[in-house]
């Protein structure tokens, strides 16, 4: 029993230490890779690196871009995903089974493999390079969130819908007035689950944004990492400062709502 606890503790250390080290490294003026460097005197800590990375990549602008990219995907998922989830759960129509199977099938298509054709279509054919639209489009509706919405709508009692239909309410108003208010927890779960996708996404926005003032933070930080950092005085400090800024919102949301994250991923994971 004790051995098991020590094992779990050791695991937690391995998982958490890099995050601690990221924070410490971002606050040190000089990189100190010795063991003592992991436990610096509080007096030696400084916010200098945050200023450096802000000068190099304009943190505020990058955060706004990440926010617009993520916000667009969340909005698309909430509007179109809720409509689809509701129809798949509560409405009988031709082709419902087909759409549902398609949704499950999509989960196994690796996105990276669609990169080249999507790049050709969105950048070359539609001319959407360096635009928020082009960034958002491939992620517009998160299929896992649609699945979660459907699960929640399915759990509502059928009598509720029958009664409203007898009263002559349209499906749209049943959805908006009755169903949505009852599945608010599902909406929160959907938002959280959708958030980490675009916020952390690197490859796609990296491909389609060449203009620096449109790049989300993950892209501008990685460009700093691969090109500029070699010339900086304390490259690791600045990179780690940027990394902390990028990691903070996702980690904070996760810590606040960890119960929802975890239950959502379990339900999406065991469905297949």
């Amino acid at each position: 029993m004790r051995l098991r606890f020590v094992g779990l503790l050791l695991g937690a250390f391995v998982f958490l230490f890099p995050f601690y080290y990221m924070l410490i490294g971002s606050l040190q003026a000089e990189p100190d890779p010795t063991v003592a460097g992991a436990f610096p005197e509080p007096g030696n800590l400084t916010l200098h690196n945050y200023g450096e990375i802000d000068k190099a990549i304009n943190l505020g602008r990058s955060l706004v871009n990440s926010g617009i990219f993520t916000g667009g995907v969340i909005l698309g998922t909430l509007v179109f995903g809720v409509l689809a989830g509701y129809a798949l759960a509560r409405l009988q129509f031709r082709g419902r089974g087909l759409v549902f199977n398609l949704m499950l099938l999509i989960q196994v298509v690796p996105f990276q493999l669609l990169t080249i054709p999507l790049y050709v279509l969105i950048v070359r054919s539609y001319g959407l390079a360096d635009s928020y639209g082009g960034m958002i489009l491939p992620f517009l509706i998160n299929s896992t969130a649609v699945f979660v919405f459907r699960q929640y709508f399915l759990q509502l009692p059928a009598e509720l819908f029958d009664a409203a239909r007898i009263d002559g309410a349209s499906e749209l108003s049943i959805l908006w007035r009755i169903a949505v208010p009852l599945v608010k927890p599902a909406l929160l779960t959907g938002v959280l689950l959708t958030f980490i996708g675009p916020w952390n996404e690197f490859l796609w926005p990296f491909l389609i944004t060449k203009q620096q003032d449109l790049q989300p933070l993950a892209v501008s930080l990685s460009n700093y990492l691969t090109t500029v950092s070699a010339r900086a005085a304390n490259p690791f400090g600045a990179v780690l400062a940027g990394a902390c800024v990028l990691a903070a919102p996702a980690v904070a949301l996760f810590l606040i709502f960890q119960r929802r994250f975890i239950s959502a991923n379990i339900s999406s994971g065991v469905k297949g």
């Binding site: 995050f19 080290y21 930080l221 990691a247 996702a250």
Partner: peptide, 21 residues
């Protein structure tokens, strides 16, 4: 549970920085 899950919700670009270090 939370500590094992934190790396999964964090952007790879961010944690790559600290692994490089």
């Amino acid at each position: 549970r939370v500590s094992y899950y934190v790396p999964y919700v964090t952007a790879s670009v961010a944690v790559v920085g600290v692994w490089l270090f």
